[in-house]
Design a protein around this nucleic acid. Structure first.
Lengths: 351, 351
DNA sequence: TTGAAAGCGATACCAT
DNA sequence: ATGGTATCGCTTTCAA
């Protein structure tokens, strides 16, 4: 037998509206009755039904994290716990909870009506593989709060958070150049993927603004001004293959930036197999610290993405939107800055 | 303006109770009205409020996955996405949803009242670092459905699922013995941790039942019948340290079973540093495929834990309990069988 | 087969 | 400062 607000009211000899006010710590209730009612609640081990509260308040205190279990994701596999932790760290203290919404069986079409119209959640967090521009438009139209994890370039009205991949790629590239590598290549990733494009852009930013590289050009032979970019689905096999391609180039690069840990692993293996010494003959760096970067031979210099901060940023933006009514209009995009983790794979002897 | 069951009733010219029955596909309603009402619902883009439904039905259609973000967990970091996927794959089709319950701020004390008495969830899934025996007893007393991920040895009444660590350890050990290693040691893990104890037990099971080992004993010198077990918190540093201890033993083992990927990584590094060749002079095997086993040098033979299946098993047991009223009493524990992934680290030349 | 009315467990407005 | 009552959106008897 669950005990309800009525039981408390009866036991404390007050109206249930009074009990409700005590629950919400209304200033209109005297300290005396508050204490009396609270004592009864404690004694009867009362806990308000969150369902009833939420129905009455017309507010779900609930945000959904949308995932699609039908598609594999290296990124989510490595970072899901962190992302959830980040989100939870901001919504939890605000008394919101997080529910996992799997759209695998629901389908992209009906999922808006399921979660949004069904008022299961007050806001949605999802990644940019799920949040298509059309979907975002629909949510915008409904004025329904949402945040994408992962940028959606171009559309000004959309709301997202992302790691600053462009700046990160520039940091990584600059590190290589400062380290004495003059001709870094970029391998892995797919054209059209915003993350790939952002990283390539950052890579080129760094190449374009580097003076040392200009001076080295003479000794090192002809350098491609805009760098060498070899795309390919980010797995180990392509890491190997793309390294072979690099080594067959007329101007072989002296460093490699890899799109992912798996690409980097394949690259390291291929280089080792061919007797290319790392970091002396070839520097290698990668994006992401997890799962492998600290544990390869040699350990990989990488750009460490703070996925907890990413989740937290998403949570903050979402909560800002949910409470937007009374607040100033919120900014609709936010970068989380990555940081460089320097390891042996780029420790070239300085000349 | 959200549209409700009343709007549908009005538009379809029926009572709202009729609409409700259509929603639940009650047999007492004629096909004709059902179709009529459904047409209206479609047209008005109606979606029932899950909050109201759940309050009225006195059922949350919601299970909680309890985590404690204040404590780091290598296991959860590597497997959280899989576990959630497994749970979701069974509860989703039953129209239950999964909410994340972080007890970091709630505290172990108040969390039962928060989630259980507050009827936020119909059942709880948590790991055995959170589900203390006292807590389990409390939940048992309340007849509240829950499942622990990770065994809780001893208590017969408790409900859990786990990877069959004992059998798995025996498989791994037997593999080494069959491969020609005669004196495998076990390193890493902490006394008192059920997972450690189960694995050590399995390791000893395999040693005890092996005949080949008996024959080898003569050539190999004195073997410790119950094996060599060196515990230690499962990280890289201890992997290195424990290997040093092993190498200093009077009867140096010819194979090592590691409690975790990190221990194994440390072990590999230390062995390499000392010029011990793997797998010829020393075989190395580990538990868990992720995150490193396929990517070390040489790649590690491991026991691959199916964490998706683990999550699914937890989901199934929980749902069974939730629906226990009308069903037969459910079994209260279940093993998920791991499988061996053989790689180069144990490919000793057979003699 | 359908409808009217009483819950489910809280909140919120209006009296007192 | 407190109490009475309508309400949130749906389910569920019980009549008709």
């Amino acid at each position: 037998m669950k005990i309800t607000i009525n039981d408390i009211a009866k036991a404390a000899n007050v109206a249930k509206s009074t009990v409700s006010k005590v629950l919400n710590d209304a200033p209109s209730i005297s300290e005396a009755t508050k204490e009396k009612v609270r004592a009864v609640m404690r004694e009867m081990n009362y806990e308000p039904s969150s369902l009833a509260t939420r129905l009455a308040k017309q507010k779900g205190y609930n945000v959904g994290l949308v995932i699609d279990l039908s598609r594999q994701s290296d990124f989510l596999n490595a970072s899901f716990y962190d992302i959830i932790g980040g989100v939870e760290s901001v919504i939890g203290p605000l008394d919101y909870e997080l529910t996992i919404c799997n759209i695998e069986h629901v389908g992209r079409e009906r999922f808006v009506s399921r979660f949004v119209l069904g008022r299961k959640v007050d806001g949605l967090i999802m990644d940019n593989s799920i949040l298509t521009p059309e979907l975002a438009g629909e949510l915008n139209g409904l004025k329904f709060p949402y945040v994408s994890i992962g940028e959606i370039p171009g559309m000004a009205s959309l709301c997202w958070v992302d790691i600053n991949n462009r700046r990160g790629a520039a940091m990584l590239t600059s590190h290589l150049l400062a380290r004495g590598y003059s001709n870094p290549a970029f391998i892995g990733g797919e054209r059209g993927d915003p993350m790939f494009e952002a990283r390539v852009a950052g890579y080129r930013d760094a190449l374009a603004t580097d003076e040392i590289r200009g001076k080295k050009a003479a000794e090192a032979g002809p350098l491609v001004p805009s760098g060498i970019v070899l795309p390919g689905y980010a797995n180990e096999a392509n890491g190997r293959r793309l390294v072979r391609e690099l080594l067959a180039l007329p101007n072989v690069p002296d460093a490699i930036i890899c799109m992912s840990n798996l690409v980097a692993f394949g690259a390291l293996e291929e280089l080792r197999g061919r007797g290319v010494s790392i970091p002396d003959e070839m520097g290698v760096a990668t994006f992401d610290n997890r799962p492998l970067a600290p544990f390869t031979t040699p350990p990989l210099t990488c750009l460490d993405m703070d996925t907890f901060a990413l989740g937290a940023a998403a949570g903050e933006m979402l909560m800002a939107q949910i409470n937007e009514a009374e607040a100033a209009p919120v900014s609709r995009r936010r970068w989380v800055e990555p940081k460089l983790a320097v390891r042996r794979s780029t420790e070239k002897e300085m000349t």
